[in-house]
Simulated assay, not measured.
Amino acid sequence: MTSAEILQKIANSYSISLAKLALKCGYDRPQAFYDVANGKTKTISGDMANKIVAAFPELNLNFILTGEGEFLKSNCSIADNSKDYIYLLPISAQAGKLNDFIASVKEGDCERIVSPIKDAEFAITITGESMAPEYPNGSRALVKKIDAEIFVEWGRDYVVDTSNGIVVKRLIAPEKEGHLRCISINPDQKKYAPFDIPTSEVYGIYRILFCMSLK
């Protein structure tokens, strides 16, 4: 069995596409899986195989690497993977001011949680009260990255990753060119005043799709 056939067998067994399989295995993009599927990459790497087994622990690692032996581990069956899992980043979005922290997070540092919605890429914990009551302290924002060079929908809430840290704010049309205008939901505007972030200091903008409050 070729590596392409092995990947397709895994995807078919869980009734998911190769793109969805790649996402469940922690890949931001499915290209590495496509390269194996179309024969550009001849073998499944050890790193890819380990990520597949981490996402689907009932699968036999040796089978994924060689195509030989049993597809499943002994006494295992195909698990229910209908739930969508995402990573909860082990850092917080300061729902107040920028926190002078640049995060470099590895998948192994993250907890996997069940997402109640589709399309969320990861979750991050919100700290502070500037976005309360809609986003209370300790709640989790489920987010998806946007292409800010193409379009930013003003008046919506985002997690913004900057050179000075991570912040969650509502973005409105900027007053100064080359900046993002950030405002808080908390009505105490004296305490939580609007501020601007130069776009040159922005690494990424993530739209908040859903907020989970922990009770």
Score class of each variant (00 low, 15 high):
residue 3 S to I: 05
residue 7 L to T: 04
residue 7 L to C: 03
residue 7 L to H: 04
residue 8 Q to D: 14
residue 8 Q to V: 08
residue 8 Q to P: 02
residue 9 K to Y: 04
residue 10 I to F: 01
residue 12 N to K: 13
residue 16 I to Q: 02
residue 17 S to H: 10
residue 21 L to N: 02
residue 23 L to R: 06
residue 23 L to Y: 12
residue 24 K to D: 08
residue 24 K to R: 15
residue 25 C to Y: 01
residue 25 C to M: 06
residue 30 P to C: 05
residue 31 Q to T: 13
residue 35 D to I: 07
residue 37 A to W: 00
residue 41 T to M: 08
residue 41 T to G: 07
residue 42 K to E: 10
residue 44 I to H: 00
residue 45 S to Y: 13
residue 48 M to R: 03
residue 51 K to C: 04
residue 55 A to E: 01
residue 55 A to K: 03
residue 55 A to D: 03
residue 58 E to A: 10
residue 65 L to M: 15
residue 65 L to Q: 07
residue 65 L to V: 11
residue 68 E to P: 04
residue 71 F to V: 11
residue 78 I to N: 10
residue 78 I to R: 07
residue 79 A to D: 12
residue 79 A to V: 08
residue 81 N to G: 13
residue 82 S to K: 14
residue 82 S to Q: 11
residue 88 L to T: 04
residue 88 L to W: 07
residue 90 P to M: 13
residue 91 I to H: 10
residue 92 S to T: 15
residue 92 S to W: 08
residue 94 Q to T: 09
residue 94 Q to P: 00
residue 96 G to F: 05
residue 97 K to T: 14
residue 100 D to L: 11
residue 103 A to I: 11
residue 103 A to G: 11
residue 106 K to Q: 14
residue 109 D to G: 06
residue 110 C to S: 06
residue 114 V to M: 09
residue 118 K to Y: 08
residue 118 K to D: 14
residue 119 D to K: 10
residue 122 F to N: 00
residue 122 F to M: 05
residue 123 A to R: 00
residue 124 I to G: 02
residue 124 I to M: 06
residue 125 T to W: 03
residue 125 T to V: 13
residue 126 I to G: 00
residue 127 T to E: 14
residue 130 S to E: 03
residue 131 M to E: 02
residue 136 P to A: 12
residue 138 G to A: 11
residue 139 S to E: 05
residue 139 S to W: 05
residue 139 S to L: 12
residue 139 S to Q: 09
residue 146 I to D: 02
residue 146 I to T: 06
residue 148 A to M: 15
residue 151 F to I: 12
residue 152 V to F: 06
residue 152 V to Q: 05
residue 153 E to M: 12
residue 154 W to T: 11
residue 155 G to Y: 10
residue 158 Y to A: 07
residue 159 V to C: 04
residue 160 V to Y: 01
residue 160 V to H: 02
residue 160 V to E: 01
residue 162 T to P: 02
residue 162 T to K: 01
residue 163 S to G: 08
residue 164 N to T: 12
residue 169 K to M: 04
residue 169 K to V: 06
residue 171 L to S: 04
residue 172 I to P: 02
residue 175 E to I: 10
residue 176 K to Y: 08
residue 178 G to W: 05
residue 181 R to S: 07
residue 181 R to N: 07
residue 183 I to V: 15
residue 183 I to D: 00
residue 185 I to H: 07
residue 189 Q to K: 14
residue 190 K to R: 12
residue 190 K to Y: 08
residue 192 Y to L: 06
residue 192 Y to V: 05
residue 193 A to I: 09
residue 193 A to G: 06
residue 196 D to P: 07
residue 200 S to T: 15
residue 201 E to S: 14
residue 203 Y to E: 07
residue 203 Y to G: 04
residue 204 G to L: 04
residue 205 I to T: 00
residue 208 I to H: 02
residue 214 L to V: 15
residue 215 K to I: 13
